[in-house]
Design a protein around this nucleic acid. Sequence first.
DNA 1: CGGCATCCGTGCCGATACTG
DNA 2: CAGTATCGGCACGGATGCCG
Lengths: 101, 101
Amino acid sequence: MAKAIENCPIDQTLQQIAGKWKGPIIMTLLEHGQCRFNELEKRLPGCSRRMLALQLNDLVKAGIVAKEVTATVPVRTSYSLTPRGRQLRPVIEEMQKWGSV
Amino acid sequence: MAKAIENCPIDQTLQQIAGKWKGPIIMTLLEHGQCRFNELEKRLPGCSRRMLALQLNDLVKAGIVAKEVTATVPVRTSYSLTPRGRQLRPVIEEMQKWGSV
DNA sequence: CGGCATCCGTGCCGATACTG
DNA sequence: CAGTATCGGCACGGATGCCG
């Protein structure tokens, strides 16, 4: 997605949560708090492992999601929202209201 | 963009306002009420005529924007938000708040 | 279990030109 | 003035397979 133009904070927000699965991922984490990779996979039918990983990486890079890894075998990974990510709640809620009309 | 899956109203909303210029277009219309095509073009530097037209069409199809044409020569066209579109205000505002942190 | 690498189709978006 | 037509690049996203 090239560069947007401007001073427009909307696009700032939009770019970070645009992406086919970012919305649902954030919603799931808002509802369930902390989730394992597999758990997210189960809760997001239709989302491939690849896409889940990609979008999670984006969200981590954006500072919205925190990733926690335990160095055991097999590996266990947990994802949760950062404070910044939790602040998205009102945004999500408004979108939800509007979308369910 | 295949189909999304689900019952997820977020994606409903996200899909309709995703698109490089839809956010800024909606914002402009929220601020200025009714706008001519040229006016929008001026207010959205970087947005080509083509993209402006395409995204406006999408928004009209989505029931967010109303288009009004006077059959004079030369043609005058005006765009404004529908009631449905105006209900996006809280969504936009929340996104704006979050994006400007 | 939780990824990353690769291949590849589709669609978004930009540039340019033409029209009523 | 307000669009549409056409072309073409490139990123997004799906399918599949391998790895620590």
